[in-house]
Amino acid sequence: MLKEGTMVYFLMNGYVMSGQIMNVEGNEKEYTFSIEGYSGCEGPHVIYSNQIHYTVFLSQQEAEKYKDNPQMYLAAYC
């Protein structure tokens, strides 16, 4: 389970972005969180733990591997 304040990386429109984890809720098997600086018109997006290594990455190097694959991007809309 990721802890509040952990730095994660994500892709938006081919760019590697980063932010800290916040608002962690759930348990070790299934949980949700938000990323500071990644929000929509109505506030922070809720991200599910099963998105780790698919749209949310634990290192910049891991994210860089997928920056040419739009299926790995987090949504960039409200």
Rank of each mutant, 00 (worst) to 15 (best):
Y9P: 13
H45K: 05
V16S: 09
G40D: 02
Y31D: 07
G43N: 02
P70I: 11
G5R: 08
V8I: 13
F33V: 00
M17A: 07
P70A: 06
V16R: 08
C41T: 11
G26P: 07
N13K: 14
E25K: 01
V8F: 06
A75T: 08
K3S: 15
M22G: 04
G14N: 13
V46W: 02
C41N: 05
Y73F: 15
T55Y: 06
K67N: 12
S49R: 01
E28T: 07
N23D: 15
G5S: 14
L74Q: 10
Y66A: 07
S18Y: 08
G37N: 06
P70Y: 04
M72A: 14
I47A: 10
V24C: 12
V16N: 05
M22E: 10
S49Y: 03
E4D: 15
E36L: 12
M7N: 13
Q20E: 13
E62V: 11
K3P: 06
E28P: 04
E36R: 10
H53M: 10
G26N: 05
E30Y: 03
V16M: 07
Q61Y: 07
K3N: 14
E4V: 11
N69W: 10
G26Q: 04
P44C: 04
K29D: 09
E4G: 09
Y73K: 00
E4S: 13
N13A: 12
I52Q: 07
Q20D: 11
N50V: 06
Y66M: 06
V24M: 01
L2N: 05
E42F: 04
L2I: 15
Q60F: 03
N13Q: 15
S34T: 03
S59C: 08
N69A: 15
T32A: 02
V16G: 13
S39T: 00
A75R: 14
G37Y: 08
E4Q: 13
A63T: 09
N50E: 12
G14F: 11
G40P: 02
E28N: 09
A63C: 09
F57A: 01
C78G: 09
G37C: 14
G37R: 10
E36I: 05
G43M: 01
